[in-house]
Design a protein around this nucleic acid. Structure first.
Lengths: 251, 251
DNA sequence: CGGGTCATTGAACCATATCAAGTCCTGTGG
DNA sequence: CCACAGGACTTGATATGGTTCAATGACCCG
């Protein structure tokens, strides 16, 4: 993960729209020089997708890249017979799209209502070339995603259903609150909302919806989580959930 | 994947040692400007590891990065109780190491005898800053690895044991021969050697050694592969193996 | 109230794990 | 040349976690 130090910089007036941007800290546009930011700003246009809408599809040539401003995006890949796997779940301030590729190699779909800050593909790639700072940020973010993907490979290959579900809840606890409130990382309890249907969770964890449902029920009976309406989850003791998730040795 | 166009450039004398390097095409040092290449060349020193030797370990701060010149490297992560998952299998001309990180987030071990072309970490990162070309190449390679990791997530989460083993063999067929002979991609049959023990294959595929063994036997009985001594595999009809591997929709 | 989607629960089944021999290969020493 | 020891792999029998199939329940919206 990256240290953000642009917070100190006061943006000039014409970058007002970036000042309060949810992707301001941690996005590709964070911690780059002002010229680059200004150029990006000129390129940007916002777009909104409703839950379930396709953002781009596999094998389609990228025509734009984007920062996620709000909501959650599923990246999925499927086998010829329809089996699906979610290969990435993205939240603000993640970057969306595969630079320098013939195609995004996967399918992106809004899991909830999603707001994006979009850049036309060609122009963005030109900026990457012009501003090494920007390319550096993209590299950092790509490396972080690679780390996350590998962490998930451990989950998919070696964890039990219970550990998978617990890990998924831990991920949400971390991702959906870090942005909102970096300080509350210290809290020992937490509340958040699951932005996915059971079918999506199953596709993310390499399980079936029935197994996901059973494991959630099981965690509830154990007192590790409490559930409310509309996918609300309360975790009284994060450490207990963490333990149920099984830890990777390094961490 | 990237197009290599440096082939046309004739290297000056003092870069002789790079001229015949197995990482010359496709490595981080491919397709960068001559100054950058010369700087890398000055930094580089070769190192050899025997099969089974640890190259670096998780949580250790990176002190060098490297190109793989020959052999195969396993990147593994494990859970606290010892369950293991191989999260990356690297061949020439792959890049080894996590730039800009507090730690490599995984454990690297030589799967076979391995030759590396190593760069001291600090100096290499300084070059990344100095030569955007080089950083660009690293970004491209990182993006390719992310694609590969996601492809593998589909395998881990959604493929059957038979498909997993067939996919693994396809991977070897592609990786161990592409470098050696780009042209033979067109052949319909192929021979290669499995550079891993059953235990490693199992850790790569999220299976047990017994299951791996049974599936290999099964593929042999079906006539999809023939096996010789020392892990040699002959695939009479690549398309048949490809079919057994299950295809991801886009491909 | 009725029809749809989504989630939960139960029962039976099956793919893969687990446990336990056995076999093959290779190198070593007599 | 044979005996044999150890590791890697294979094969078999059994167990089980997770899937599959089927029914039911909860909620929403018109």
């Amino acid at each position: 993960m990256n240290v953000h130090d642009t917070g100190r910089v006061i943006l000039p007036d014409f970058l007002k729209s970036c000042e309060r941007c949810p992707a301001r800290f941690g996005g590709v546009c964070d911690n780059i020089d002002l010229d680059a930011l200004a150029a990006l700003n000129r390129l940007a246009h916002h777009r909104t997708y409703e839950a379930g809408q396709v953002i781009f599809s596999e094998s389609e040539q990228p025509d734009f890249f984007a920062n996620i401003l709000s909501g959650a995006v599923k990246l999925t890949k499927s086998l010829a017979d329809g089996r699906q796997q979610i290969v990435g779940l993205q939240f603000p301030p993640d970057f969306l799209g595969r630079a320098f590729g013939q195609s995004h190699a996967c399918f992106a779909e809004a899991a909830t209502r999603v707001e994006l800050c979009c850049y036309p593909a060609d122009a963005f790639q030109a900026l990457l070339q012009k501003y090494p700072d920007l390319e550096h940020r993209l590299l950092e973010k790509t490396l972080d995603e690679l780390d996350a993907a590998r962490e998930w490979m451990v989950l998919l290959g070696r964890k039990t259903a219970r550990e998978k579900v617990a890990s998924f809840l831990m991920l949400l606890a971390r991702r959906t609150n870090k942005a909102a409130c970096p300080a509350c990382a210290e809290e020992s309890s937490i509340t958040f909302t699951i932005p996915l249907k059971r079918a999506d969770i199953a596709d993310y964890l390499g399980l079936t919806i029935e197994t996901v449902s059973r494991q959630i029920t099981h965690l509830r009976h154990e007192g590790i989580i409490e559930t409310g309406a509309a996918g609300e989850v309360f975790v009284p003791d994060i450490a207990a959930l963490q333990a149920a998730a099984g830890q990777t040795e390094g961490a």
